[in-house]
Amino acid sequence: MRILLIGATGYLGSVVAEHLSDTGHEVVALTRTPESPSRYAVRPGDLHDPDSLTAAVTSDIDAVINVATPTGDAAVDAAAIDALTAPLRGTDRPFLYTSGVWVLGATGEATAEESSPTNPIPIVGYRPEIERRVLATADHGVRATVLRPGIIHGRGGGIPALLVEWARKQGAPRIVADLNVRWPMVHIEDLADLFGKVVQDAPAGSIWHGVAQPAVPVRELALAAAEAAGVHGEVQLWPLDQAQGELGEPFADALALDQSVDGRKAQDQLGWRPQQPDAVTDVSKGSYR
């Protein structure tokens, strides 16, 4: 497939692009600066310029994957979705939108599935509406799907890298607000593999959770981060109001979010088989050392 990828230079997007290319697809990267060096073909386009997005989805593009970070402006992101999907209508070509498990909110004792209602925290407040906008295009001949990754680890990046940085600076492991918080986790390379399976095989109108471990205790991740940083000591609790003051309220609240999220649907229906190290092992002994 010839796949237009929005967000191909980011932490996740770069690995998705690599995986797609390695498995035989041709990646076309959307970029605001077409003259920038790239191992992939490029198309000009900007999420703030809907006409440029529509122009990029030419008839030779077999699928579109959007892994770009949302702009933070609901109207801009909605217009971008409309622009990217307009040329796909009536063609049954795939459009894959990347959301995230934070749209589910705190899950409590339950484990959230794809059918669970959304209850987004403020940092992703309007994203469920974007998801609905994407999925509605399935009624107009677009093979539209939504993929919600868990907290991503691997290749020394993502949110776990913050835990390592905090441990190194504080001389001890540190977490925000609550020692009992759990995060649903997925290795970035396993997640990239799921992107390939969803864009190839997932039916129109479907939602998928990219989660390999439903509920990893963040306390264990913090201890692993301390090991990677070469420090020791008891886990320090960072009071939420102090974390909000330094990180900003929306992001601090997200880090304090307790979730259990099920990712078995992708394994059962798409044959996804996560194979990379679990999060604690990766952080303590793998790519974060």
Rank of each mutant, 00 (worst) to 15 (best):
L135A: 11
L53H: 01
T91A: 01
R155F: 05
A192D: 13
E249P: 08
G24D: 06
G205E: 14
P214K: 09
T111W: 10
V101I: 10
T31S: 10
T9S: 15
T107G: 01
R182E: 10
A222T: 02
A55M: 09
D262V: 12
I81M: 04
W102N: 14
W183Y: 00
D82V: 01
E227Q: 14
G263M: 08
A226N: 05
E246V: 02
Q213I: 08
E220G: 04
V199L: 10
G230A: 07
E113Y: 13
V186P: 01
D46R: 02
V67C: 06
R127K: 10
K285Q: 08
A136E: 15
D258P: 07
V146T: 10
L194T: 05
T145G: 09
D178V: 06
G150K: 06
V76S: 06
A161M: 10
A75L: 13
A110Y: 12
H140A: 13
E109F: 10
G196E: 03
E18G: 11
G248R: 04
W238R: 02
P37V: 13
D22G: 13
A86C: 00
H19N: 14
S115D: 15
L88W: 03
G72R: 08
T91I: 03
A68N: 00
H25W: 02
L237T: 03
L147I: 11
A144T: 09
A75V: 15
A144W: 09
E227S: 13
T33E: 13
Y40D: 07
S206N: 01
A225I: 11
P173R: 03
Q275S: 15
V261A: 11
A138L: 12
A29D: 05
Y40N: 05
G105S: 07
P250T: 06
V103K: 01
M1E: 06
A225H: 05
V211R: 12
H48G: 08
S38V: 14
G271Q: 04
A215I: 08
D258I: 12
T118P: 07
D139T: 14
A86G: 01
A215C: 07
L162Y: 14
L255R: 01
K285H: 09
